[in-house]
């Protein structure tokens, strides 16, 4: 998957979890949790959405790579 495709996929998953957040306003390198008020439940919902979209599970041990939007995009681009 290209990075652009990966970014769209992640942004769509984020829109499901937090429709009020405009992806254009997100700093891709800032931690999602602090920057967007994403709490552990939102994060779980986001990971579930992304895992569903890429068609494979994301183990908890990979969470450290998913701290930022950029991290998510890298992860998705590399894994499918």
């Amino acid at each position: 998957m290209t990075r652009d495709e990966a970014r769209r996929l992640v942004e769509q998953a984020l829109a499901q979890v937090a429709p009020e957040i405009d992806p254009a306003t997100i700093d891709p390198h800032e931690p999602l949790q602090a920057d967007l008020d994403i709490d552990s439940i939102d994060f779980l919902n986001l990971v579930e959405g992304v895992a569903g979209a890429i068609g494979r599970d994301i183990p908890e041990s990979d969470y450290a790579r998913l701290a930022t939007l950029e991290g998510f995009v890298d992860y998705v681009a590399a894994s499918s």
Binding site: S40, I41, L44, V47, E48, A51, D57, I58, E60
Partner: peptide, 17 residues
């Protein structure tokens, strides 16, 4: 928690809360 979650897919995982 890590132990429990390692065996689970994301939708069944628990958070510390």
């Amino acid at each position: 928690l890590q132990d429990v979650n390692a065996a689970r897919t994301v939708q069944n995982r628990m958070v510390p809360a």
